[in-house]
Design a protein around this nucleic acid. Structure first.
Length: 378
DNA sequence: ATGATTTGACCCCG
DNA sequence: CGGGGTCAAATCAT
């Protein structure tokens, strides 16, 4: 059993380190002509969130009586003011800790209760490695696309629950093909109580069903045109999702080779960003390395820079050329809260690698997943 | 009739 | 013990 104090201390350091790194990136962004408004906003959002987390960590150790600042995704509210038909999304990618959400409460996920009976070890392990990331989706008030908004996959609602401290209930969705194809992907949709036009969509698990797998045809998805109540948006997204899934799979496969190089410094990870490509190929994966992980970046660039975008020091993000999904900017931020892995890494004598390989080896990436060019360590 | 949603109960975990 | 997540029967929609 680990003392939680150590763990929180590490997390605190991580948060602060990430905040610093994000601020640096923001600085670069400010000077970079290629930087977009959205990406900067996103960085601000992440910085704020990082500090919120850090504050929470401090508060948890501090004597009671300190004011409770509301933790909410301020920056996610970055309304894409220029176009209201362009809902914006800010995505946080995490795996063992809930992002600063409206509830603020820790979550426990057990989507596989059934399996656990037969194979507890398997189930719990699988659950722990289940990736989780959150999008903050802003929907325009007038539009009907909310709730289970169509992200290229078909979901089936299996529950709804009032969350403590949240105005609106949280909806639970699982992949429609869960039982047919054993796809364990789930998502939760929580409307922000501050701004009801913001949906916090937390995805969990990778789609193993066909809708996100290997078919590259333009119209693969939704063999089931359900959800007549909600606006069915164009679903070509899934194509790029499939692509990205493959790429990401390659990504994690290749990555574990390089992890040894990363033990040098603070556990910062490079981040990257590629917009949800409109069509078959996401044509610009932009990947932004951190200063400390150049070899990492080299490795990544090999994988993530299919085309001309090989300027590994550039932060060029082009979230503008989105299509398919009503212009939603998909920027996913990897969050690495992995206390277990950290404590494991730090306590192990012969492997000082700060769990660097964790996110890519154990995490399964989702097809509708895009990296962002901000530090994804939190 | 079939499949999705609703909704209260149940389970697990912190 | 309480909150969050899931199950599953009842209900609704197509």
């Amino acid at each position: 059993m680990e003392n939680s104090a150590d763990r929180e201390g590490i997390n605190l350091i991580n948060e602060l380190t990430q905040g610093r790194e994000l601020a640096r990136q923001l600085q670069i962004h400010i000077n970079a002509p290629s930087s977009t408004h959205e990406s900067r906003e996103l960085l601000v959002h992440k910085i704020l969130k990082s500090y919120e987390k850090a504050l929470n960590l401090v508060k948890s150790n501090a004597p009671a009586g300190m004011g409770e600042t509301q933790q909410q995704q301020t920056g996610a509210t970055m309304a894409v003011s220029e176009n209201r038909s362009h809902p914006s999304t800010g995505i946080t990618f995490g795996m063992s800790e809930s992002p600063t959400s409206l509830s603020g409460s820790p979550r426990s996920e057990d989507s596989d209760r059934e399996y656990r009976d037969q194979d507890p070890g398997y189930a719990s392990r699988k659950r722990k490695t289940m990736p989780r990331w959150t999008k903050h989706i802003q929907v325009s008030p007038g539009m009907g696309l909310e709730g289970p908004l169509d992200d290229g996959f078909s979901w089936r609602k299996y529950g709804q629950k009032d969350i403590l401290g949240a105005k609106y209930p949280r909806g639970y969705y699982r992949c429609t093909y869960r039982h047919v194809q054993g796809c364990l992907a789930t998502k939760q949709v929580q409307r922000s109580d501050e701004d009801p036009t913001i949906l916090e969509v937390t995805y969990r698990g990778r789609h193993t069903c066909n809708q996100g797998s290997e078919s590259n045809q333009p119209s693969v998805l939704a063999e089931k045109p359900e959800s007549s109540s909600q606006a069915n948006i164009h679903q070509q997204v899934s194509k790029s999702q499939q692509n990205q899934q493959e790429i990401l799979l390659n990504f994690q496969r290749d990555l574990k080779v390089e992890t040894k190089e990363l033990e040098t410094n603070s556990p910062l990870f490079p981040t990257f960003n590629f917009p949800p490509a409109s069509d078959e190929r996401p044509d610009s994966y932009t990947f932004c390395p951190n200063e400390t992980h150049d070899n990492f970046s080299g490795e990544l660039s090999r994988i993530f820079m299919p085309a001309a975008t090989s300027r590994s020091n550039d932060f060029s993000v082009s979230p503008t050329h989105i299509s398919g999904f009503a212009g939603i900017q998909n920027s996913y931020t990897l969050e690495t809260e992995y206390p277990d892995l950290i404590s494991a890494a730090t306590s192990t004598t012969n492997s000082p690698t700060i769990g660097v390989d964790f996110p890519f080896r154990q995490m399964e990436f989702d097809p509708n997943f895009t990296f962002d060019n901000t530090g994804f360590f939190s």
